[in-house]
């Protein structure tokens, strides 16, 4: 059997007396896109910094492709895009790409990379003069330049317009098809839902849930029911299996843990029920539910 691509074993990390990670154990398989989700301060960025060897491991054990993070870094095993990182911004796009290409054993063809990252025409522009979205695309290209087997991407689409976002998703999907593994840290649930094979939900330094997007969604057996009704919010709250009620744009939105039971009772109480719609909970609802159950008091960001 293949050994996992990334293995964290009982990893804890503290900043002073604040715990950022608390005995986290994770395995990430190769050839997959793994999404790391969690509210701000959940420990995502600490986890990524530990994986990349940018922070010393305080307790526990981390292996990336069977090596310690610092050894894997020297071998050029990954390409990364970090929120906390930037570049020497007086350099132009092509100068940065050439510099990074010189660092890896088998760099990509620069021209096709410029194409792929949508940087045509910007080659001779200094980084400091690029727009936020263009900068983000340069950082993405720098992550790809070494043709790594693993991409570690922290919020890669923040600041991108919808078309550029889709473009980046396409590149990630293509790389995955070529056998590249991806660890994706994101705040966008649609991004995780579209790209990820595996999801890890982190909250307050602990792993809250781990599994496929479907299995995460099924952990919260919720459905959302929308309808126009003459019942008051209080009357709705007394219906069976109702978890929460909201009034949204003249419609009522009811979160239920057992949609048929709620609906039967609701229809019995209000024959004029109208404009009915029932939706299974999406990843976002599941995520909010999971992380709300364990409210975070002291946020580390």
């Amino acid at each position: 059997m293949d050994s996992p691509l990334i293995r964290l074993d009982e990893v804890s990390h503290r900043y002073g007396n604040k715990a950022a990670l608390d005995a986290v154990s994770i395995e990430m398989q190769s050839g997959q896109v793994t999404a790391l989700l969690g509210p701000n301060g959940a420990g995502k960025s600490t986890l990524i910094h530990l994986l990349l060897g940018l922070l010393p491991v305080q307790s526990g054990h981390i292996e990336v492709m069977g090596r310690t993070p610092s050894v894997a870094a020297k071998a050029g095993e990954w390409g990364t895009m970090l929120q906390s990182s930037g570049v020497q911004d007086t350099l132009t796009v092509i100068e940065l790409l050439n510099l990074f290409a010189s660092l890896y054993p088998a760099p990509a063809e620069i021209d096709s990379l410029i194409d792929e990252a949508g940087l045509e025409g910007l080659e001779r522009t200094r980084f400091e003069r690029l727009s936020g979205g263009q900068k983000q695309r340069v950082m993405f290209a720098l992550a790809l330049v070494g043709q790594p087997r693993l991409l570690i991407l922290d919020e890669p689409t923040t600041g991108l317009d919808p078309a550029a976002r889709r473009g980046l998703w396409d590149v990630i999907s293509q790389r995955r098809a070529q056998g590249v593994s991806v660890l994706l840290c994101t705040h966008y649930m649609d991004e995780a839902e579209k790209l990820a094979d595996q999801i890890i939900v982190l909250n307050r330094g602990r792993v809250l849930a781990e599994g496929s997007p479907d299995s995460i969604k099924s952990r919260v057996p919720n459905a959302q029911i929308f309808a126009r009704s003459r019942l008051t919010l209080d009357e709705l709250r007394r219906l069976p299996a109702v978890q929460s009620v909201e009034s949204r744009e003249q419609r009522l939105s009811v979160l239920s843990s057992d949609a048929p039971a709620t609906l039967k009772a609701w229809l019995a109480a209000d024959q004029e029920l109208d404009d009915l719609e029932v939706k299974g909970a999406d990843l976002e609802t599941a995520f909010l539910n999971l992380t709300r159950k364990a409210p975070s008091k002291e946020l580390l960001s």
Binding site: L52, S85, G86, P105
Partner: peptide, 10 residues
């Protein structure tokens, strides 16, 4: 953050 990025490369 230039050195953070450089340190994550070989």
């Amino acid at each position: 953050g230039w050195y953070t990025l450089i340190r994550a490369t070989p």
